Computed example of a mutant assay.
Amino acid sequence: MQVFRRWSPVALVAVRGASMSPALAPGDVVVATRGRGRAGAVVLVTWDARPGQLSVKRAVRPVGRLWHVEGDFAGASTDSRELGPARVRGVVRWRLRPRPGRVRRT
């Protein structure tokens, strides 16, 4: 994950890896806003087990104040199934490139 612009009031983030295929592909640039999201939303997360790593995943269900999150392509995703609940840092709202558009909830 490469962050182009930090919060003010949004973050621009480049997606790396295929874990969110087909919703998001490697190289997609997305816009995220601060927020906790809800089930089905694509979110930016961090894990205590991997400090400093920012990931894009889909929120599945709340676990206390944290979230169980998973990648859309399970075969290429390291997510809550391995790392446990994640802290949601923001909600992915739009894809800027290469195909501009709203990122949909499932």
Rank of each mutant, 00 (worst) to 15 (best):
R95A: 04
W47E: 10
R95N: 06
P85R: 06
R58H: 02
E82P: 00
V43E: 06
Q53L: 11
A32I: 02
V91E: 05
G75W: 15
S55A: 14
D48R: 11
R95I: 03
R89Q: 14
S80G: 04
R89F: 12
R87Q: 06
V13Y: 01
R104V: 13
A86G: 09
R6W: 15
D79A: 05
R6Q: 14
S19Q: 03
T106P: 15
D79H: 07
L66R: 08
L54C: 10
P100C: 07
R50I: 08
A18P: 06
R61S: 05
W7N: 11
R104D: 15
S21W: 12
A86F: 10
A59G: 12
G35H: 06
F73R: 15
P51N: 15
R99T: 13
A11V: 13
V13M: 03
V15A: 08
G52P: 05
S77T: 03
V15Y: 06
A11R: 11
G17V: 04
R36T: 02
R5H: 14
G64Q: 12
A59W: 11
S77A: 01
A23Y: 04
M20T: 01
V88F: 09
G37E: 00
P62Q: 13
E82D: 08
S77E: 02
L44A: 06
K57A: 02
A86C: 12
W67F: 05
A49D: 10
G84H: 04
R97M: 10
T46R: 15
L24T: 08
T106V: 15
W67E: 00
R50C: 03
V88G: 01
A74G: 08
R6E: 13
L96N: 06
W47P: 01
D79G: 01
T106I: 15
G37I: 02
H68C: 04
V30I: 12
R38N: 04
R36F: 01
R81S: 09
S8N: 14
R5G: 10
R104Q: 13
V60T: 02
L54M: 12
W67T: 07
R58V: 00
F4S: 07
P98G: 14
V63F: 08
S55V: 09
G17D: 04
L44H: 00
P62E: 11
D72T: 04
V29K: 01
M20F: 05
V31T: 08
R93V: 14
V63Q: 14
V92P: 08
R65V: 03
D72R: 00
T78P: 05
D48Q: 10
P62Y: 10
L83H: 00
G64P: 00
V31P: 03
R6N: 13
G101R: 08
P9V: 13
P22Y: 12
G35M: 05
A39T: 11
V13E: 00
A32E: 01
T78M: 06
V10H: 05
R50S: 03
G75V: 11
A25F: 10
L96S: 09
T33D: 07
W94P: 00
G90I: 12
Q53M: 09
E70T: 07
R99S: 12
V29E: 02
P62S: 12
V91R: 00
D72V: 00
R50G: 04
L12S: 05
L12Y: 09
Q2G: 03
Q2N: 00
L44D: 02
W47L: 03
P26H: 11
G35N: 01
A39L: 07
V56P: 06
R93K: 15
V92Y: 07
